[in-house]
Design a protein around this nucleic acid. Structure first.
Lengths: 148, 148
DNA sequence: GATAATAGTTATACTTTTGTAACCATTATA
DNA sequence: TATAATGGTTACAAAAGTATAACTATTATC
């Protein structure tokens, strides 16, 4: 192999990125009103159940003030809720509400539907392959890039 | 398998997306001044050599006015250049300049360096696996999501 | 107990992205 | 040739993301 694997990986990820960017941030309209940043936060909460404001920021490499803005909006919409930490009263923990979980699931479904149209162009072997490969990429990237 | 493959894929991609978003759009500082949108455009041009304004828009699901804004800035920085189409005088073709190609390569290298730090945590088997899997994901997604 | 560090918010300014409508030039269609 | 369609720009407005500084409250450290 000419190039180092790492460079190949970087190149592949940089090609994947814009494709996901458009396909996943502006999906089919649902009745939910979730911004890309909001989606990221909800996704993190989905995986971790509860996160402090700081943890969300670390998780998504977001400055804390931005986290505040996004969470404020998510609270306004009823998707997440604040609760004070028992041990450290500085900390505010954020968790999904039932509505948040439901609407996020609905959004994922809408995205999935959106994708499904495109995936129909593939053979079932390719779909299987994409299913496996995307899981591998996901797991490895989470292990090294997810900061929480 | 409980869930349909397509839903699994959607879930995986939605987990991959925010990780890439932060790792790839705000990489190590280089002396280039390239916005995320600009990176997308340069990446498209890298793969296709030359694209019309409309094609760029289709490629990236961007409204045409936004393409104009981004390309204007890229021209200002000397990264791309306009040329009139020979057959259809409405069409303006955009292509990378030498500087654009160089600086984009440099940017990719910076991102690659950035990633390399994290990838050091992985075994060589995992790196190999990520290399293969990311290529599979890339190729399949390009085949169904890339509109040009 | 004084001081430093941490968690979170508020305020502010700026850049980027998104969306739409109106417009001109060119090409295709009837 | 009149009309419609296409490619691109201009102008405008609004939403979202980015970045930093200043501030309060709480906890940790000395």
């Amino acid at each position: 192999m000419d190039k180092l694997n790492v460079d190949v990986i970087a190149e592949n990820l940089m090609a994947i990125h814009p494709l996901l960017y458009k396909s996943l941030t502006r999906p089919a309209k649902t009745n939910s009103n979730i911004t890309p940043g909001g989606m990221f936060v909800l996704g993190s909460l989905k995986r971790h159940q509860t996160l402090s404001m700081s943890d969300i920021g670390k998780c998504l490499s977001m400055p804390k003030p931005h986290v505040t803005v996004i969470v404020d909006k998510l609270i306004e919409e009823g998707y997440v809720e604040r609760s004070n930490d028992v041990n450290d009263r500085r900390i505010i923990n954020i968790s999904l509400t039932e509505k948040g979980a439901t609407d996020f699931e609905e959004l994922k479904l809408a995205i999935s539907e959106n994708l499904k149209e495109k995936l129909l162009l593939l053979s079932s072997e390719e779909i299987e392959q994409l299913s496996v490969a995307s899981k591998q990429v996901k797991d490895i990237l989470i292990s090294i890039l997810s900061k929480v």
